[in-house]
Simulated scan of single mutants.
Amino acid sequence: MNAGYVSIRNMEHTDYEIMGKWLSTKEVLEFYGDMNSPFTLEEVKRKYAPRVNGDIPVHPYIVELNSAPVGFMQRYKIDEDEKKEFGYASKLCVYGIDQFIGIPDLFNKGLGTIMVSKFIAYIRLHTDVDIIILDPDVSNMRAIKCYEKCGFKKVRKINKGLNWLMEWTNGRG
């Protein structure tokens, strides 16, 4: 993706409408949410307002291409129980991330690789991260290839074999 400038900014209350639009798109819901249950604006507000307000420790972001919103990302620190479940040492700082491109016409153009690479750089700059994990659906080959381009490795299947646990390692440890 050569044309355009990709940036990531904090999600704001004014972004609920665009999130509602994206979360009603079958191509987005195929791997993010439930295809049979598009989000209403009220559901978007109920889910994302506590994140935007900082009431829960999940940090939401909007991805922009030339200042126009095109996608969503979020990061969250993995707690001690989850670290244990995934086999990570307690001393490690592990973050989980989720993301999607909200406009299907932008799929398969390299935008996801740019988004994820920039997000890794942002997390490295602003946290003491050792490992970043994500868990794509095993059939989401487009996302898996993107994540591998960004340095993620498949660790093992989780959720009864439905998802890959993939990790990026900072290399400090």
Rank of each mutant, 00 (worst) to 15 (best):
D79Q: 05
I132Y: 01
V138W: 05
I144C: 00
G171R: 13
S37A: 07
S90N: 13
R124E: 15
K47R: 15
A68C: 11
D55M: 09
R156L: 03
K47W: 04
V58C: 10
V155K: 04
N140H: 15
N36E: 13
M166P: 06
E64R: 03
A121V: 03
L29Q: 03
I158E: 13
K157C: 15
A143E: 06
M115L: 13
E12M: 13
F107L: 01
V129K: 04
D105K: 15
W168R: 02
E82D: 14
I78V: 11
Y122P: 01
L65W: 08
M1F: 09
M19V: 10
V58N: 02
V70P: 03
R142N: 02
E82K: 11
I133Y: 00
N10F: 07
D137K: 10
E148P: 04
L106R: 04
P60Y: 03
K91N: 13
I103V: 15
I132M: 08
K157F: 11
R9Q: 14
N66C: 09
V63M: 11
W164N: 02
M115C: 09
P57S: 13
F72Y: 15
G96K: 02
G87V: 08
R75D: 14
Y95K: 00
F31T: 02
M11T: 02
R142H: 00
W164V: 05
C150A: 13
G161Q: 07
N66T: 10
K153S: 14
I158L: 07
G33P: 04
G71L: 05
Y76F: 11
H13Q: 12
R51N: 05
G102Y: 08
I131G: 00
Y76C: 05
K91H: 04
N170R: 10
I103S: 05
M19W: 03
K154M: 06
K160D: 14
L65Y: 02
A49G: 15
P60M: 02
Q74S: 12
A121P: 00
R156N: 07
D128I: 05
G20L: 10
L162K: 14
K21W: 03
I120T: 08
G161T: 14
E12V: 08
P38N: 05
H59V: 12
G112M: 01
G96M: 04
V52R: 11
E167L: 09
G4W: 09
K154P: 03
K84L: 15
F72R: 00
R9F: 03
N53H: 15
P136W: 10
A121D: 10
H126Q: 02
N170E: 12
A3S: 11
Y88Q: 09
A121G: 06
D15I: 05
M35Y: 12
I56M: 10
F100C: 00
I133S: 07
E80W: 01
L23W: 14
Y88G: 04
L106S: 08
F31N: 01
W164K: 06
D15S: 12
G161V: 05
I132T: 12
I114N: 01
R75K: 15
F152I: 09
Y32P: 03
E27F: 12
Q74Y: 10
C150Q: 09
I97W: 06
E30R: 06
M115E: 08
N2V: 01
I8D: 02
E30S: 15
N10I: 09
L65V: 07
A68L: 15
P57E: 12
G110R: 06
E17G: 10
I62W: 00
G102N: 05
I8P: 00
